[in-house]
Design a protein around this nucleic acid. Structure first.
Length: 479
RNA sequence: GCUCCCAUCGUCUAGUGGCCUAGGACGUCGCCCUCUCACGGCGAAAACAGGGGUUCGAGUCCCCUUGGGAGUGCCA
């Protein structure tokens, strides 16, 4: 089907900061529609505002998109590299009469706005430089560099058939003549978007619903140019957990912050796709399933809150089931970030398998695995007081003897040693396992004791058990 | 102010006029499992913002109210 295979969507952030969670979801939705229909996805950098755009932000956006695995099917487009094209179109519009020069100064405009607000009217340009048949314009002042305004229709309505909102109607009488080129000649957002979407054959515009009010203006520009507007899908914004707009204080974090918190990119995508979209009762989706099932009919039109708890849960599901080769590099990244030397410790895959059921994030996993790659810095005070009691010294010693005699360092054999020590003394397993745990981990939490010792290795295990015996003896002598 | 949008458990949502005494998931609480922490299993509490219509029948359609949000820039 030609129509659907030629679908092109785009994600068009302005590089004024990192890729945040809302942008990431918009990008994902946009990517998904394209892939769903065998189309292509484009990344476009909207950097016409040179004051606020930075290279760091551009890099941060690429880094985020890259981490999430949302690749552009085209070379990314930069609006600042298209200024010649914008100028060309503006000249054409001036020529055709669909745009005109306006010589109002900023002061004049401010005054106009203030007066209108004072009269409780909607602030808008009054069209004083707009050419009309039979109207005489004032003589252009020669000390004011003009801006270019779009000559918006004054009659009729603009109808948007939004893919998620349904029909939205705007009265042209509500719109005014927006500026499409600044006094310095640089084009503005609403204009560039239209030219770009047009030139790049974008068929579906997926963006935040803060843009719905721009849409009728953009449609009008399209029509003035003789182009056909794309389909629009305005997705609601993502709110913080308290229901207010995302701010730096709560959650307006870059996606890379979520990496630092220990999220897997696939989990992030899965959480995001379910935020505002649903497919029946399904919670977990592989990327292929997302692509096969995503549709705008089931995108919610009300804003949703970012729920960290649910995000953790999704991440945990991925941690438990994701192929090891996906998890290892991310886990390694965290361990190295903690400054650990991995060479003397157990293999990462084994650690992940032992830890993944009890960790919701990779960061948590790294913290809980710290004892495997570095010497103990001491015992948790409470745990030591509870489990490293004078009578346990003998138990640990007995275990040292048994473990030393083991021909091979295998989990099953270790397990039997621990059980034997417990049975010989008619102790419950917990009475033996917990002291061991504190002795080798430093605290009373770790994977099953045989696995813990297995991972730690014979040398470190024996050394730590002996150190614990010494610790207990020293302490009891002091009393 | 004006324009536009939104409204089901605490949260994400199912629901497209009868299948709804409203389902699932996260979280919460209880029980079970258990060498710790977890995983897992079982169970519980928990919602259609309010008011009018339309209809034999409304969470689902319409209107109003209330409450949220966005826009109203020579920002994007």
């Amino acid at each position: 089907m030609t129509a659907s295979s030629s679908i092109i969507t785009r994600f068009a952030p302005s590089p004024t900061g990192f890729l945040h969670i809302g942008g990431a979801r918009t990008a994902l939705f946009s990517y998904l529609v394209a892939k769903r229909h065998g189309g292509r996805f484009l990344l476009r950098i909207e950097d016409t505002d040179r004051e606020r755009s930075t290279q760091e932000a551009v890099d941060a956006i690429f880094e985020g998109m890259d981490w999430l695995g949302l690749a552009s099917d085209f070379d990314p487009v930069y609006q600042t590299q298209r200024f010649d094209r914008y100028r060309e179109v503006i000249a054409q519009m001036l020529e055709a009469g669909t745009a005109y020069y306006c010589y109002c100064t900023r002061e004049e405009l401010d005054q106009m706005r203030n007066e209108q607000m004072a009269r409780k009217q909607k602030p808008r340009y009054d069209g004083r430089w707009r050419p009309e048949p039979g109207k005489t314009l004032p003589p252009p002042p020669d000390d004011v560099p003009p801006v270019v305004r779009f000559r918006n229709p004054t009659e009729g309505k603009v109808v948007i058939n939004d893919l998620v909102r349904g029909q939205i109607v705007f009265d042209n009488g509500e719109l005014d003549d927006l500026i499409i080129a600044r006094a310095d000649g640089t084009p503005t957002y609403n204009f560039c978007v239209v030219i770009d979407d047009w030139d790049m054959n974008v068929t579906h515009v997926v963006r935040g619903d803060d843009h719905v009010n721009n849409t009728p203006r953009q449609i009008n520009i399209f029509q003035a140019l003789g182009g056909t507007p794309p389909h629009y899908a305005h997705v609601p914004m993502i709110l913080g957990s308290d229901g207010t707009k995302l701010s730096k204080r709560h959650g307006a974090l870059g996606v890379m912050e979520y990496r630092a918190m220990g999220f897997l990119p696939e989990a992030m995508l899965n959480y995001l796709v379910r935020l505002g979209w649903s497919h029946g009762d399904q919670e977990l989706f592989t990327r292929d399933e997302m692509i096969a099932k995503f549709d705008f009919d089931h995108v919610s039109s009300s804003p949703s809150r970012f729920d960290m708890e649910k995000a953790y849960w999704v991440n945990h599901q991925y941690l438990k089931t994701a192929p090891l080769e996906k998890v290892v590099p991310e886990f390694e990244w965290h361990l190295q970030r903690m400054g650990l030397d991995l060479s003397g410790g157990p293999g990462l895959e084994d650690v992940i398998v032992a830890q993944r059921e009890r960790c919701r994030t990779l960061l948590e996993m790294a913290e809980k695995s710290h004892f495997l790659y570095a010497e103990l810095s001491g015992y948790d005070e409470k745990d030591a007081a509870k489990h490293l009691k004078p009578e346990t010294a003998e138990v640990l010693e007995a275990l040292v003897t048994k473990l030393s005699a083991l021909p091979e360092w295998q989990a099953e054999a270790i397990h039997q040693c621990v059980h034997a020590v417990a049975e010989e003394r008619e102790l419950k397993l917990g009475k033996v396992a917990q002291p061991i745990r504190v002795a080798v981990v430093g605290m009373a939490v770790s994977p099953p004791i045989d696995q813990t010792l297995m991972l730690l290795g014979r040398t470190r295990t024996l050394a730590r058990l002996e150190a614990a015996v010494e610790h207990i003896r020293n302490r009891s002598e002091q009393h």
